[in-house]
């Protein structure tokens, strides 16, 4: 087996549809064994980048390496993929679809059915295994499609907006299963614009907007680079001088959004000057939601 640290290497990908630039010089790497978040607002070029990575559409320029090689169909059998646009053949039974897709990934019929049975148990759809897809709810269909993408125990799993349309319970279930997949040694990359999912699952991310790569790296580094964005103070009351619109207070815990005018030292000084005892004073790093909004907004202003 070839030795490699980066399971997926995207280097300088470009794609235009007619006159519209959809992907502009995007580069990033997904490391072996990590859960990688590919972030961006709707229409930012995430899905097109994923489709190019998988060879579904061709890039105008740039290269893709996967599992240490230039991807071909034999290599793609070691990859699991859940497309953004969901759907399965409506008139076909669940187990038939799993066997079909499993066999296309190189499993035998019996292995595909055994793995399908096991995973359907896991997602609570075992009782529906001989039902036609048209008899399932949208969420159930999505789970079946997710099962089909991990059926063959792929080394790399690429999921395009995997949680969209799922109820909170199924989102939780899918997240647990992603952790299980990672624990067995798979590398996972998923696209999303829901930042709470990113904070929960990922160590590293790439953020794209309007076809450009805006940020790339570990979440901790990205947050640290930006510095603290909020000060949280636990105190019995709030000084009059800090009662501004950028403040929240609940049960003696106050949060202040800091910026050019309101710095952390000013906040602390205000409490001391007012003689209010401070039990706790914390500098909070920005959330990924803050980072996402700030970066995308800035990119759109500059565009």
């Amino acid at each position: 087996m070839t030795s490699y640290d980066d399971v997926l290497e995207i280097d300088g990908l470009n794609k235009t549809f007619g006159d519209r630039v959809v992907v502009n010089d995007i580069s990033f790497q997904v490391r072996r064994g990590e859960i990688f978040g590919f972030l961006g607002p709707n229409g930012s070029g995430k899905t097109t980048t994923i489709r190019m990575a998988l060879g579904i559409i061709k890039q105008d320029s740039g290269t893709v390496r996967m599992l240490g090689q230039t991807p071909d169909r034999a290599l793609l059998k070691r990859v699991g993929y859940l497309p953004e646009d969901r759907g399965l053949l409506r008139k076909v039974k669940v187990m038939d679809i799993l066997r079909y897709l499993g066999r296309l990934k190189g499993l035998s019929s019996s292995d595909a059915e055994d793995r399908g049975t096991e995973l359907l148990h896991r997602v609570g759809l075992y009782a529906h295994r001989y039902k036609k897809v048209e008899g399932l709810s949208r969420g159930m269909t999505q789970l079946v499609q997710f099962v089909s993408s991990i059926l063959h125990e792929p080394e790399l799993i690429i999921l395009d907006e995997p949680f969209a349309g799922l109820d909170p319970l199924n989102v939780q279930l899918m997240k647990q299963m992603l952790f299980e997949q990672r624990d067995r040694g798979a590398t996972i990359m998923f696209s999303t614009h829901i930042m709470s999912d990113v904070e929960e699952l990922c160590e590293r991310v790439a953020l794209v907007a309007d076809s450009h790569l805006l940020l790339y790296g570990s979440i901790d580094e990205i947050k640290r680079d930006r510095g603290a964005s909020t000060v949280r103070v636990t105190a019995p009351s709030m000084p009059e001088s800090l009662r501004t619109g950028r403040t929240t207070a609940e049960n003696g815990v106050m949060e202040f959004n800091i910026g050019e005018e309101l710095k952390s030292e000013i906040i602390l000084r205000a409490f001391l000057d007012a003689g209010i005892p401070v039990e706790r004073f914390e500098l909070l790093l920005p959330t990924m939601n803050d980072v996402f909004i700030e970066e995308v907004t800035r990119a759109r202003i500059l565009a």
């Binding site: 579904i56 859940l82 646009d85 296309l104 990934k105 993408s149």
Partner: peptide, 20 residues
């Protein structure tokens, strides 16, 4: 129907990564 169905519901994206 089968070909159009797979294209319309995007299942073909999963199949095309495994077969020409």
């Amino acid at each position: 129907q089968s070909v159009a169905d797979e294209k319309e519901n995007r299942m073909i994206e999963m199949i095309i990564t495994s077969a020409t």
